[in-house]
Design a protein around this nucleic acid. Structure first.
Length: 466
DNA sequence: TGCCTTTTTGC
DNA sequence: CAAAAAGGC
């Protein structure tokens, strides 16, 4: 009976019911089976795993409120999707697109295998403002520079208006013999035990679509005004905090765009914020067009950069014990909350790749393991941007001085005092350069692990020799 | 979405 | 001679 064949809605990085084109397609076809596959071939960082546990629980909760449920499978993606399609007698499988090379390969293979078995398969644009291939130069080539790309995006007019969540969706009953293969979020062992390092994450974040919209609404009401200037100050609660919600698709960039754009297109603050959302799209479009971005320098001359091997320095950077307060505050914020202020991300990344001359991929890996918002596009894109090896990157000679950056963007030292309490007693004069306060290391705070002038000179010499 | 040094300016 | 501008990395 073809009219009773269910449609599988395959959730991936789009864990929401609102503005979900694939879900709307599935509901329009009849009864729906909702699927998520947790595949060890696509490993997540520790913070992402913590987030995913809450995200899957929230999505299952939201589906149950509508009379459905989330079917979670653990194992090989291709095998899992094909297995569920066969066992449920699905007539179609639908999903929203991903843009990384490995994910695209899997999706292409799954689509072909489904169609070979007579199952319809359809992918949708759900996670970007625009699909990468929709924004092209006059020559039809990919943009390599953000500003002209962003101008071309804006010339296209507003992105598609967000779709409402499906009204009264019909869900297929999942038979018990299929239920035996399904798992609960707890079975995926996503949460840390011994040690439980997630207290800070629990205190700061609530995964899920409802929390995403609460955060978006609060940002639009309270923080867009003044964003353009305040966003640079890490001690201020001036940023949106939406990055992990966008990472897991609890909210779509189109929803964000339309919520902010209602404030008026000429507004400086909303324009500044929307361009940050634009950078997210640009990173994904760049990964789509340059699929090696995740692991290889986009500027091949950097293949000859003499990156150092220095596990002691790397460990100090990771632990927030470099002796430079703004660096250590950022790295401790990251470890404690799974997030770091963007200004500080640039400073710590510059310090790692330039003053310490360590490979950007080492920093990217640490961020991927500790950030709740890391994704396959934004994280390597931004590291390549800072390191200088990206297509539209900051030039290598632009070296952030952690003392100068601290004094400029944390002038009262509030950010440093919050995360580096052992030097909180120092006056503002010394808060970003505690070694100047006296010979004794206050409170056990380490001496600087590298000389700023020497590290800078070493990095510039290495770059000149490329 | 620099930093540092040198040169020029303006008093 | 201090501050601003310029220039190179």
């Amino acid at each position: 009976m073809p009219d009773t064949a269910p449609t599988i809605m395959w959730f991936r990085d789009d864990l929401r019911l609102g503005d979900n084109p694939a879900l709307c397609d599935a509901v329009s076809r009849g009864r729906v089976v909702c699927l998520y596959v947790h595949d060890p071939a696509f490993p997540l960082g520790g913070a992402e795993k913590w987030w995913l546990h809450g995200a899957l629980s929230a999505l299952d909760h939201d589906l149950r409120a509508q009379g459905g449920r989330l079917c979670i499978m653990a194992g090989d993606t291709h095998e899992s999707v094909l297995w569920l399609a066969a066992r449920t007698g699905a007539g179609a499988v639908v999903w929203n697109r991903r843009y990384g090379p490995r994910a695209r390969q899997v999706d292409t293979d799954v689509k072909a295998a489904l169609k070979a078995r007579g199952v319809d398969a359809h992918s949708h644009p759900g996670n970007m403002l625009h699909e990468p291939w929709q924004v092209r130069t006059k020559q039809g080539t990919p943009f390599r520079v953000f500003t002209p790309w962003w101008r071309a995006v804006q010339a296209k007019g507003p992105p598609l208006p967000p779709l409402p969540a499906p009204d009264q969706p019909a869900f297929a009953v999942v038979p018990p013999e299929i239920g035996d293969r399904l798992v609960r979020p707890a079975d995926l062992a996503l949460l840390p035990v011994r040690p439980d390092w997630a207290q800070g994450l629990r205190a700061q974040w609530q995964p899920g679509e409802a929390a995403a919209h609460a955060r978006l609404d609060a940002f639009v009401a309270e923080r867009v005004h003044g964003y353009a200037t305040q966003r640079e100050l890490p001690a201020q609660p001036a940023t949106s905090g939406l990055s992990p919600y966008l990472r897991f698709g609890h909210v779509s960039p189109r929803q964000v765009w339309h919520a902010v754009e209602t404030l008026g297109p000429g507004d400086q603050d909303s324009a500044c914020f929307l361009s940050e959302v634009g950078w997210r799209d640009f990173a994904h479009a760049t990964l789509f067009d340059f699929p090696g971005m995740g692991t290889g320098n986009l500027r091949p001359e950097y293949d000859n950069m003499p990156w150092r091997h220095d596990p002691v320095a790397l460990r100090a950077w990771q632990k927030g014990k470099t002796g430079y307060p703004i660096i250590d505050a950022g790295m401790r914020e990251l470890w404690h909350t799974g997030w770091m202020h963007n200004r500080v991300r640039m400073v710590v990344a510059s310090f790692l790749t330039k003053h310490l001359l360590l490979d950007w991929r080492v920093g990217e890996a640490w961020f991927a393991d500790t950030l709740v918002d890391a994704d396959a596009a934004s994280n390597p894109f931004n590291w390549q941007w800072v390191a200088g090896c990206g297509l539209d990157a900051a030039p290598y000679f632009r070296v952030f001085n952690p003392v100068a950056q601290g004094e400029k963007f944390d002038p009262a030292g509030d950010y440093v005092r919050k995360w580096v309490p052992e030097i909180a007693h120092l006056p503002n004069k010394y808060i970003h350069a505690p070694w100047k306060a006296g010979p004794s290391a206050p409170g056990g705070y380490p001496a600087p692990i590298v000389d700023l002038a020497g590290g800078r000179a070493r990095a510039l010499a290495a770059w000149k020799a490329l």
